[in-house]
Amino acid sequence: MHPPDQLGRHRDASAACGDDHSPCTLHVNGTRHDLTLDNRTTLLDALREHLALTGAKKGCDHGQCGACTVAVNGTRINACLTLAVMHDGDEITTIEGHGTPESLDAMQQAFIDNDAFQCGYCTPGQICSATAILEEIRAGLPSHVTENLSTAIDLTDAEIRERMSGNLCRCGAYANILKAIHQVAEAHS
């Protein structure tokens, strides 16, 4: 390998590109996948490009929009901000694991009932987050707006809005997303 140039770049192409691969097993929506992946592959690209599960969306690839939200071992995460090889053996739930067009889950149906989307691109991430925040509230995980840390957390508009604020919706469906989440929460309570 050549020494780095004055900008710190290595001139040897293969080394500079970090073209190393590792085996990795992902359990996605209950199905085991044994993959060999470029170490640079994000969890999001593993899902979208290698498993053709394109429900998780790439809006920014920088953890700024939330369109790629999936659950890893039950916790929501931006799949674009984590490398696939860091998830060897993990259980991953994507929007495809929530329901199919023929058999939607309650949150998916609530999004339709309340017109909680327009273009649909942020929607899978919104639904994954919406599902997760109800669990987070039930589990007593506080947010920035939780007023009392010693009692059960109330499912207020403010709690939902705060917890959903990592999922951007440029079509501006927030008011309807809020209603959809309340619909599911009320059905469960």
Binding site: A52, T54, K58, G99, I112, G120
Partner: peptide
């Protein structure tokens, strides 16, 4: 009337441009 493309969108099955495997 609810969106007729809704089921595809909420289930992640609506194919956007970059996703056409």
């Amino acid at each position: 009337h609810a969106r007729i493309d809704g089921r595809l969108k909420v289930s992640g099955q609506a194919p956007y441009a970059y996703e056409r495997h």
